[in-house]
Design a protein around this nucleic acid. Structure first.
Lengths: 242, 242
DNA sequence: TAGATTGTTAATCGATTAACAATC
DNA sequence: TAGATTGTTAATCGATTAACAATC
């Protein structure tokens, strides 16, 4: 139907690279899922959950693919990495498939998320409803500004970033979202890593360095707009002569 | 050094798909740049700009690659899509290269951005400093809530989304950022497209449909966290038996 | 000339698509 | 049995990497 592309995010992770040995003993269980497929599985999961919400019990690869904006070929291939949970000639049971995808993605236990930076973006993220409903608990929010420390944000009070390590420890945080200026991002990132957090999502517009074993993802608004600009410009100038 | 991956964002664009004819007459000018390369070019551009800020005049592919977190091979290959702006045996002149990348990305003229949704996220985006400095002017922000319409956000006043078409027209908006709930995203998106905007960045957690010729990019916080969860879980369970 | 570094080619690797045999 | 749809295989396509000839 229309071309669907993955692009954009940088993930620095040493977890993909070494196949980690272990010659996958049973079925699709211990297997590596290709990064592109992981990203799409989250989309299928969302589509399945809205089907579930409206009471749909079964779905074919064809319709789930359409809801997700991919080809049915891609969808079936992606699902094959998770396992074999459909019925030929029939389709997939929505709830059953949803559960297995969630399990494959590691969404069965709850994740505790701390946000560093209580500026506009940090506050927006802390209050964002989409997290709790998907098994992500925001358990802390930090800022360096003493005028902001102690303020209420959603259900939380802003902690002093000076107490970062202690609060991460006490709350059992296992994921951190960095919503802070480029200038301080690397040093805070280092402290977060040293404190034992191995999953970091950064909104800071800089390349951060993390050691092996730490997964870092990056979201950058300016980058997104620049990519849009490239496409818009191409559309306007279909082929300018030098 | 470490594995660098592109993943994550969905771009629905029909602009990639048809090579658009025009057998590229001169050099690399009218050529298609592969999506993965476009995303990285924005990173190089940022690195070049910080080099420029600290007064560095020349840089080799090796060091620029390191700053950007890619291999020098990838970097040179990416630059080759833009043109040939280095000197063998010497390297690249920072300012010169920066300008050419900016031109290739279509960042030479200013883009006018409107934000739809003046909730936490919309406000955070409107006040985000990274835009102006990169040639993106935020010219309008909208909301449907009459309690919010007329409020001040940064330099702007919140417009009524009822006046969407008129304001987009008057401000000359050519990019829209959707920062609104899933439920209303598609209908607002349709209005934006009908108003003639062809570049849309959506933060709404739904698959949006856009016609051919419109470029849509999507950023999704919950998806990002789910991808982190997948990696974290893998790290914990190096190969669980069934 | 000797050393350095680009731009490009060819080889590898991974992701997408099409097609179809298996099977409900 | 006939129709439908999965799961998988093989073919295509695109992206990354390594290597090196061109050249400053």
């Amino acid at each position: 139907m229309d071309s669907q592309r993955d692009a954009t995010e940088q993930t620095v992770t040493s977890l993909d690279s070494p196949p980690q040995a272990l010659p996958g003993p049973t079925g699709a269980a211990g297997k590596q899922i290709p990064p592109a497929a992981v990203a799409r599985l989250t989309i299928y999961l969302r589509a399945l959950n809205s089907l579930l919400a409206e009471g749909t019990e079964r779905v074919s690869s064809e319709s789930l693919a359409e809801l997700s904006g991919v080809s049915s070929s891609t969808l079936r291939k992606d699902l094959s990495h998770v396992g074999s949970y459909g019925t030929r000639g029939v389709g997939y049971e929505v709830q059953y498939l949803s559960r297995h995808i969630a399990a494959a993605l590691g969404l069965t236990h709850d994740w505790k998320v701390a946000i560093v930076g209580a500026g506009n973006l940090g506050k927006a993220l802390a209050r964002y409803g989409g997290f709790e409903s998907r098994g992500f608990d925001v358990v802390a929010i930090f800022d360096a500004d003493q005028m902001v420390v102690g303020n209420e944000v959603g259900w939380l009070r802003v902690s002093d970033v000076a107490d970062l390590e202690a609060v991460l420890e006490r709350t059992g945080t296992n994921m951190v979202v960095l919503a802070l200026p480029a200038a301080v991002a690397q040093s805070i990132c280092d402290r977060v890593v040293t404190a034992g957090v191995r999953s970091i999502l950064s909104f800071a517009p800089v390349m951060l360095q993390v050691p092996d074993g730490v997964t870092l993802r990056k979201v950058d608004m300016a980058t997104e707009l620049q990519i849009l600009a490239y496409h818009a410009q191409r559309a306007q100038t279909p082929g300018q002569p030098e």
